[in-house]
Simulated assay, not measured.
Amino acid sequence: MKTTKAVSLADELVRQLERQIDSGELPPGSRFPTEKAITDSAGVSRTVVREAFARLAARGLLESRRGSGAYVPAAARYRAFQVTPEEMQEVEDVIKLLEIRMALETEMAALAAERRTEADIATLRECLDRMAEGGDVEASVDADAAFHAAIARATQNDYYSRFMDFLGIRLVPRRAVYLRDQSDVAHRSYAKAIQRDHEGIFTAIEAGDPVAARRAARRHMQKSLERHRRMKDEAEAGPLD
């Protein structure tokens, strides 16, 4: 899976406009340059500009006013750091998120093991049972996200739950990214591997063992990282002659 030129150009334009917003060059309330002005100055097509504007709007950094143009919202300076669904379309983006989650999830699991309540254990078990049903892929992914959110709540530290929301961690990387063009057998095998990892984390948290919980969470995240890095390497290598 290779990144198209248009996507790459849109990425760069988004970064450029974000830097201008963060630096104050484009302060809250200011008007963005017109599409034509950007196409002329950046040397990109209107399609690229519109894609960049759509991404900025999704991040709360651009608002359109009918008949007037695009503006930087007043709340842009107070924006919370988050990862949007639009940013989780490529393997490279998923890898970046997983690298952040590596540190977050390991300590979160350890704290959950120390502080979890019986209600937390029941919620985690319910999430695992829903994942094990394995009937509907999206339902299973939703249960996966709920499992990680439940671990955050089990820390009894509200900042973990809030940071998870800001980071977009509830958007557990969609299996459609890793399993694109894969068979049903691959889907089932992947689901079973994830289920085993989650069972290991749950067992450690239920036992109140922070060392084992930290180790199980790290192992889970490391395996996920390795899978996606292999996929990225294979995509970059291209087909064999």
Score class of each variant (00 low, 15 high):
A74K: 13
K36Q: 13
R214A: 09
A109D: 02
S183I: 02
A6T: 14
R170P: 00
H220P: 06
E114Y: 11
E133G: 10
V141C: 08
L9T: 04
S183K: 03
M164S: 05
T203W: 13
V172I: 08
R55D: 01
R229G: 03
E99S: 05
F32R: 02
G29H: 11
Y78M: 13
A103H: 11
E90A: 11
S68G: 07
F163R: 03
G168C: 00
D93I: 08
V49C: 06
R219K: 06
A112R: 03
Q20K: 05
H220K: 12
E118C: 14
V14I: 10
M108H: 04
I95L: 12
M1H: 10
A75S: 15
A186Q: 09
R65Y: 12
L124R: 07
P239W: 00
A119H: 14
I169T: 01
L179C: 10
V172S: 03
E206Q: 08
E118K: 15
A149I: 04
F163E: 08
E35G: 09
Q82G: 01
E236P: 12
A193K: 12
L240G: 10
T39F: 08
S68V: 14
E105H: 08
Y160V: 05
R46A: 15
G24W: 05
F166C: 02
S189N: 08
D209G: 02
V44K: 01
H198P: 08
T39D: 11
H148L: 00
A10H: 01
R55H: 08
R116P: 04
R55Q: 07
R170M: 00
R196K: 15
F32W: 07
L179Y: 11
V72N: 00
M131C: 09
I151Y: 09
M131Q: 01
E118H: 15
F53S: 02
I95H: 10
A154F: 05
L167S: 00
V7Q: 13
A146P: 04
D120P: 04
R218K: 14
R101E: 09
S224N: 13
Q89F: 12
E99L: 11
G208L: 03
R175G: 07
Q195S: 12
K96N: 10
L17G: 02
K5A: 12
A57Y: 01
K192S: 13
T3E: 13
L240S: 14
R174Q: 12
E118Q: 15
V91F: 07
A113M: 06
R188V: 07
R77G: 05
V48T: 07
R50G: 06
R153F: 12
D209C: 02
R50Y: 06
T4V: 09
S189P: 05
R230N: 10
K232L: 10
I95K: 09
L56A: 03
H187Y: 13
S23L: 13
R116E: 08
L98R: 02
K232R: 12
T155L: 01
